[in-house]
Design a protein around this nucleic acid. Structure first.
Lengths: 193, 193
DNA sequence: ATTGTTATTGAACGTTGTATAATTATAGTG
DNA sequence: CACTATAATTATACAACGTTCAATAACAAT
């Protein structure tokens, strides 16, 4: 019952990615499976392997989609703002993670067996560059310091996000993720005079 | 061929946990399996289920062991030191994670299906308390501020650690995990006068 | 000895990732 | 239009996994 004209290769890819994301959203990454996705799009696992090569690659594509959406979300958050961009960035970071917990968690839950390909690395690197450029417009430190500041800040926000979504911050009261993020930024970044 | 006097229930538990940790150390959490552990200790999966009830519970015990070792390591690092305790704490944090990547990663890779039991929560809570107490001896802010500082700091170090071990910091040069941690602490904490 | 209890096993079930041979649909060619 | 080559899709198979449970073995008590 091979249907070849139902969907082009690209349509199929898109179909599978959409279904994969939906599956992760609904059931979480732990319940994600190739057969689950295949069933949702009316194909068989074999087709997925034919299109993506391996499950690893497939998940990489799924996570890449999330990275793109996340990045766009961050860009939109600071678009047109001239002050407090860092805070807006941090809040957008946290908001996205909270609103798409399962997709966001999948980014870090999936441990690729192979070395992560360059095109994927580039997608994660963009985030650093974003923070760095925002920071550069707000601080008058030298480039090296800004680089370190950006990494520290980014990692810090990430840590807050991870622990917050893992409910490992909730048990210790005092301060939501947003509060901590604000605290971190205020301490770490000295506003330009 | 049931042998009942070979090991008491507690010995068996200890045996299984040790073998489980060894398996994670050697092959990583992704390759961990109940059958793998059972094989190493010369028992069957059924026995593990009998002793631990479920795989979830078993892994919880494994991670608890890691948490204990980690906590002890942190305590030892600041034992007897009267200055720069925070930095020592952060470095110990990072050192432990680096030296026991697989065990440390398992702590966050394992997503328990059930709500995490209280005895386990207590073990993670201790870490916050530790940071908080160190911070209290070093700062003269009020309690609430210290609480927030502790959480921000802890989450920040954690984020640095996560990204560092995931090689997501390496691609952006400038600054090891240790450098970032030092930077974070200096910015976040104002030493007592 | 016999019994009751409990640890341990072995086998089974459903599901997973992965590979491959067998099918089927299409494109190309005469 | 018929025939063939090519590529997509399926069906099937395999080993390993988590999980359950009846059968079995070992022990404690009487």
């Amino acid at each position: 019952m091979a249907r070849r004209s139902d969907h082009t290769r690209d349509e199929l890819k898109e179909l599978a990615i959409a279904a994969g994301c939906a599956l992760i959203v609904e059931k979480g990454f732990a319940q994600f499976s190739a057969r689950g996705v295949a069933g949702r799009i009316g194909y068989t696992v074999g087709t997925l392997y034919n299109v993506f090569g391996s499950l690893d690659e497939f998940i990489l594509c799924l996570n890449a989609r999330t990275l793109d959406a996340w990045y766009d979300y961050l860009c939109a958050a600071i678009d047109g703002a001239k002050s407090g961009q860092l805070l807006k960035l941090a809040m957008a970071y946290i908001n996205f993670a909270q609103q798409h917990v399962n997709l966001w968690s999948a980014l870090f839950l999936h441990q690729s067996e192979q070395e992560v390909p360059d095109w994927y690395k580039a997608k994660t690197r963009r985030f650093f560059d974003l923070v760095e450029s925002v920071l550069a417009g707000q601080s008058n430190e030298d480039e090296k310091t800004i680089r370190i500041q950006a990494k520290t800040l980014w990692a810090g926000i990430h840590g807050i996000c991870v622990l917050s979504l893992g409910n490992q911050l909730a048990q210790v009261d005092a301060g939501s993720a947003e509060t901590l993020a604000r605290h971190l930024i205020e301490a770490l970044v000295v506003e330009k005079d």
